[in-house]
Computed example of a mutant assay.
Amino acid sequence: MNITKKKTAMGTASGKIILIGEHAAVYGHPAIAIPCTAVQTHVNISPAKNGLYLYCDLYEGLIDDMPELLTGLKTIINATLYYLNQEHTPLHIRIESSIPSERGMGSSAAVSCAIVRSLCQYFNKSITTKELIHLVQIAEKIVHGNPSGLDATIISTETPLFFEKGKPFKKISINTTGYLVIADTGLTGQTKQAIEKVATLKKVAPKTHTSIMTTLSNMTHRVTHYLATNQLHALGQTMTHAHHALQKLGVSHPLLDQLVSLSLEHGALGAKLTGGGLGGCMIALAKTKQDADALRCILLSKGAKQAFVQPL
């Protein structure tokens, strides 16, 4: 196949946020995820004289010499070049990302998505959404073992999704004003340990576990309605109640609780952890961009390592 190459190309992908339903989703209850354009990955492709080179925060050098830790990256690059029938083309691949890694914001899927987009652009090859998701999911399986496909789908489509285990993802309507402030504790999220804690609770206190899961499920259904009907105050209250439920599951962290409390003290309509917990990030809901920017500054001054503002 003879494909025309460009001199350079760039692919971009955004992050994602679990708005509500984390952990309950593991037990078949619904959850909602939304794209997060406030953080992005950019991948630049340029020609090389010989060899295939990668440049990123974790590694610089020949792709064949990459450490095992980056097997997912190597896999997505090789899979995409195979898809394009360009396995032996010498290239420089540069990755820059503002998406915090291991925070439940879809960092690995975004990198994979941006790599596929940039390589397809470089070789002037169009790709369908289905093909894009398929390629990204190949790398996600290397990184996460048995992923749900949520990250690959939401980052590839940039569409808010309602999802339940074992069921097709459903697009949801967001007709909501307001802004989310995402604050990073600076601590790696401990998703595996958090899932184990919730599983232990199910064994030792099954009634408590069932009650919390039912509560989170009902909240998620209500949030779908609030997003579609611009009920900001109800959305915020539900987010805070969801955080309390996640605290009862044992998956929060003192730094997350501190940032949630600070947000509420400084005018947030609601706040909660997002993602696996035991570290990672929290989200707070603000009514206006001005309120969100002010809250972001406060959270940064009070311990957040990074903070971003995302319009709903």
Rank of each mutant, 00 (worst) to 15 (best):
H225W: 08
E196G: 00
G72H: 12
T240I: 02
N2H: 14
N146A: 15
K167Y: 12
K192F: 05
E60S: 11
I115R: 09
D291L: 03
R296Q: 15
H253S: 07
V143A: 15
H29K: 15
K165R: 15
A242V: 03
K141I: 08
A205K: 14
E22V: 08
T229F: 13
T128L: 13
E87Y: 00
S156M: 06
V251Y: 09
A79D: 15
E140Q: 12
L132N: 03
V116T: 09
L81G: 04
C36S: 13
T220R: 10
L201Y: 04
H221M: 05
Y83I: 02
L187Y: 11
Q290M: 07
K167E: 12
G277A: 06
G277I: 05
L70W: 04
M282A: 11
K203S: 07
H209R: 02
I34D: 04
T274A: 15
G303T: 08
L135V: 11
T214G: 14
M1C: 11
P160F: 08
A194G: 07
T4F: 13
G277T: 06
T185E: 03
E196H: 08
H253G: 06
A152C: 10
Q290E: 13
G267W: 07
L69Y: 06
P35T: 01
H209Y: 10
I174L: 07
N218Q: 14
S107I: 00
F163G: 02
G279M: 12
K125L: 08
Q86H: 04
Q40A: 04
M282L: 12
Q86E: 15
K49I: 00
V143C: 10
S98C: 03
P311D: 08
L269S: 05
D65S: 09
K192H: 14
H29V: 01
N146S: 15
N85F: 00
T41A: 08
E60D: 02
L216M: 14
L312S: 03
E131H: 14
P30V: 02
Q258P: 00
T4C: 08
M1H: 13
P254F: 12
A183F: 02
A48T: 01
L19I: 03
E164Y: 00
K141G: 13
Q306M: 09
L259S: 06
G106A: 02
L312A: 06
Q247P: 00
T177R: 12
Q231I: 02
V111R: 06
I174F: 04
L70F: 07
T157F: 03
V111F: 06
G275I: 10
S252P: 05
G51S: 01
I133K: 15
G149T: 11
P147R: 14
G178Y: 04
Y226I: 05
T288H: 07
T157R: 12
T71G: 02
K49V: 00
L264K: 03
N50F: 00
G189T: 13
G166Q: 10
E87F: 01
V223Q: 09
T75Y: 03
A183Y: 01
C113D: 09
A194C: 05
K167A: 13
P206Y: 05
N218M: 07
K49T: 04
Q193M: 11
K171A: 13
G277M: 04
A284V: 04
L278P: 08
A284D: 07
H233Y: 10
C56R: 00
L161A: 09
L216R: 00
L246V: 06
G15W: 03
S211P: 01
A25G: 05
L235D: 06
P160I: 06
G11F: 04
N78E: 12
